[in-house]
Amino acid sequence: MIVSIVVFVIYCAIVFGIGWLGLRATRDEKDFWIAGGRLGWLVGGATLAATHISAGTYIGTIGVIYGAGWSFGWLLLSIPLGYWFMAAVLAPRFTRVRKLTLPAFMEDRYYSSRVRALAAVIILVAYIVFIQAQIVAGGLIANVTFGIPAIWGMIGFTVILLAYTSIGGMIAVVWTDYFQLAVMGIGVLAALPIAIRQVGGFDELMTLVQAANPRVFTWESLPPSLLITMGLAFMLGSVASPEKLTRLYVMKDMRTIRRGVLLNIVAILVINLIVFMLALVAIVMFPALPTGDLAMPMITHAVLPAFLGAIMLAAIAAAMMSTVSSLLIVAGSALSFDIGHTLLGPAASQERRMWLGRAGTAVVGCIPVLLLLGGVGQGELVQFIVLLFTGLMAASFFVPVVLGVYWRRGTKEGAIASMLGGMIATFSWKLYGSPALDPVLPGFLVSLALMIGVSLVTRPPPRHALEPFFPG
C-alpha cells in the first residue's frame, strides 16, 4: 500500500512537472492545440500509441480475453492496417493544408461553418461518454488499490488530468504521453515473466488455461460476423478518430508521420500481446471473477510483488490518463476553438485565446464526473464502450474526411448528411440491431451512401474550397 502510494506520487509529480514545462513552452494558440506542429517521430509516434492504448486495453481487452477467449485477440491485426491506411493513403493529402483541429479542416473543405459546428458537437458528445468510461475504470483501479470509494478515485483522476491538460495544453499532453507510454511498456514487460513464473512456466500455463476453459483457443466464443465487424470498427476508428487525426498536424512532415506510425504500431502490438498473455494468467489464477474488468487489478494486487504491482498500477493509470488527456484537449478545442471562437472575435490576443482554450478544456473535463455523480453512465464493460465510441467516430468522420481529400464532388450537404446519418445508424443498430454485428458496419455504409447520394444531387463545391486540397 505504502509502496503503491509512493510510486503513484512520484508518477504524478513527473506528470505535473511536464505540465508545468508545457505551460512555459506554450506561446500561442498553435502551441496550445497542436504543440506547434513540429514534433519528431519519437514523440509523435509515442503520443499516437499512448492515445490509442487506453484503459480499454489494460482493463477492457484483458477482460474480454478473460471471458471470451483468444479469438478476440485477432482483432489486434486490424489496428496496424488502419494506421497503415492512415500513413499511406490519408495523411499525404490530409496534411496538405495544416489546420489546428479536425472541425476546422471540415469547415475549409466543406466551405461551411455549420459543418464545423456539427463536427464539434459530435466530438463533444461522444468524447464525454468515452471519457466517462475511462474515468470509471480509473475509479475501479483506485478502489482496488487504495481501498477508497470508486467515486473519490474518479474525482481524483479528473482533478489530476485537468491540472496538467488545461494548463499545459497539447505540449504537456504529447510529452506526458511519451512518459506514460514508457511507464506502460515497463509495467507489462516487467509483469509478464513474473506472472508466468507464478503459474509454473509457459508450458504449464498453456495446459492449465485449456483445462480451465477448453474454449479459450477456439473461434467459438464470439460469432465470426461480430469479430470481423469489430475489427472493421477498430480499423476505421483508428484512422478517423479526431484525436488521432490531430496527431497528423502535430508531426512536422510525411517522413516523420511514417516513422511515427511505425513506432505506434510496434508499441500497440507489443503491449497488447503481453496484455493478452496476462489474461491467460488471470484465467488460471482467478477463474471465477464477477467481471473480466477485474482481471488486471487482481493481477496487480495478488500476483505481482508490491513494487512491481505499484509500477503496474501506474501503467494502468498512465494508459487511462494519456488517452483522456488527448480526448480532453481535442474536446476542449471543439468547445473553445470551433464553437467558442465567435465569442472572441478576430482581433483577440493569443493570450486571451489560450485562456479560452484552458477554460473550455476544464469545462469539458468536469462534465463526465458530474454526470457520474448524478448516477448517469455506469455499467457496461469498458471494452464495449470503447468499441461503441470507436464505431461512432468511424461512422461519423471516416467518409467525410477520406472522401473530402479524394473526391472533389463531395459537398457540404453530403458531409452533414454523412456525419449525422452515420452517427444515427450506429446508435440505432446498437439499440435495436442484431448483437451479432458490430454497429460500425451499418453506420459506415449509411454514412458512405449518404455522402455519395446527397453530394451528387446538390450543387458542386466552389473552386476556392477545393483548390488547397486538390492543387494543380
Binding site: 483468444w70 479469438s71 485477440g73 485477432w74 489486434l76 491485426l77 496496424p80 492496417l81 497503415w84 499511406a88 498453456m206 485449456q210 479459450v216 483457443f217 477456439t218 473461434w219 517522413r255 511514417r258 516513422r259 506510425v261 511505425l262 504500431i265 510496434v266 502490438l269 500481446l273 493478452f276
Partner: peptide
Amino acid sequence: MNPGFVFWGLFLAAAATLLAYVLWMWWVER
C-alpha cells in the same frame, strides 16, 4: 481448429504485418 494455430498464428500474423509495413516504408522512401 488447432489451438496452437489460434494462439501462435496471431504472433506470426502480427510480425508479418509489421515486416510488411517496414518494407512499404523502405519502398516509398528509397
